[in-house]
């Protein structure tokens, strides 16, 4: 599902932000224009795809956010909006009046939630207001960037605001060439253990965890894998592939952590498949040099068979940053 960035502006300054590099290299007031939206919609439609994610920055900061959503719905796309849930009361009122008419299966939200204990009160209040109105259309999302994280609040939100009973769990990854907070490779097993300490609660509340990209299969033991399989029906992926992000100024890149990695213009491609193929080939080249985030990844049969991709490419490319350029030229950022 391609991600369209409506704006570069954001209301938060999350320490782990993996969009940071892209944002720092772009004009902060860049907003997707109607003309470019129509172009992107045409490109995606021609590629035979019907699902679109709208991202930012904070996508609701775009002055035409509601118009854009309705336009894409009119074009028969299914929309997922990734938001912080932080927006003005005026916009929230307008959105809940207009977007309420869109069938739930056509429009949903993923609300990136930060631990309320570490967030300003005004931010928490705004998020709650959003969830009161749109909770039934919303899946909670949480980005892990430190070992002692706490996701207990997610379960409270799910029950209080009627959120969908699945949570998107992401690990913060390094951005090659920039210092952001991320989960170091050696911390990943600790993270997984902590995550699975919530397993009984998730099971009791029938909440399904969904792993975002960058997790490796070997981080989980067989018991954990079995539990995950039982709860999710085997839908968990241990992936890292081109997500395809399209910026307001029509640049395109593989995913946020790799926003400087062979950034191109959308106009260079004729279809989403072409874009995906272009980045897939680059990913493959990197994986030829280094299979994955662990040394064992090189010989891992699960990686060979495609059950696991070997973790986030951001870790691998960061490793290349400080070495002599002795590998294939394409893999250097």
């Amino acid at each position: 599902m391609p991600n369209i960035l409506l704006t570069q502006r954001c209301v938060r300054t999350c320490p782990y932000c993996f969009a940071k590099k892209h944002m720092s290299e772009s004009l902060s007031d860049d907003m997707l224009s109607w003309k470019n939206l129509i172009y992107i919609a045409d490109l995606i439609e021609n590629s035979g795809e019907r699902n679109i994610s709208l991202l930012g920055g904070e996508p609701t900061l775009h002055p035409k956010f509601i118009d854009f959503v309705i336009y894409l719905i009119e074009r028969n796309f299914n929309i997922v909006v990734f938001t912080s849930g932080i927006m003005s009361e005026k916009l929230l009122h307008e959105a809940s009046t207009i977007l309420a008419r869109v069938p739930e299966e056509r429009l949903s939200f993923v609300c990136n939630l930060n631990d309320p204990k570490q967030s300003p009160i005004a931010e928490n209040e705004s998020v709650k207001r959003f969830l009161e109105r749109f909770g039934h259309r919303t899946s909670g999302g949480f980005n892990i960037y430190q070992k002692n994280f706490d996701i207990g609040f997610l379960f409270q939100y799910i029950n209080r605001y009627g959120l969908k009973r699945n949570v998107r769990l992401g690990m913060a990854h390094p951005i090659p060439g920039l210092k952001n907070k991320f989960v170091a490779i050696e911390e990943m097993r600790i993270i997984i253990e902590r995550l699975f300490s919530y397993a009984p609660t998730m099971e009791r509340l029938r909440i399904k965890p969904g792993f975002d990209c960058g997790f490796t299969m070997c981080l989980l033991n067989d018991t954990q894998l079995g539990w995950l399989y039982r709860l999710t029906g085997g839908t968990t992926k241990f992936g890292c592939g081109p997500a395809i992000d399209i910026g307001p100024e029509m640049s395109v890149w593989s995913c946020f952590p790799l926003s400087s990695f062979h950034k191109r213009s959308v106009f260079e491609f004729d279809s989403m498949n072409e874009i995906r193929h272009f980045y897939m080939e680059l990913h493959k080249k990197v994986r030829i040099e280094v299979g994955g985030i662990f040394e064992e990844c090189d010989d891992c049969k699960y990686r060979e068979e495609g059950s696991c991709q070997g973790g986030c490419l951001g870790h691998i490319l960061s490793r290349f940053q400080n070495e002599a350029n002795i590998r294939m030229p394409e893999i250097y950022v």
Binding site: W34, K35, I38, Y71
Partner: peptide, 13 residues
């Protein structure tokens, strides 16, 4: 104002 974009928009719909 915005005629070219509005024409594209209407046509695309």
């Amino acid at each position: 104002e915005h005629t070219y974009t509005n024409i594209m928009l209407l046509s695309s719909l």
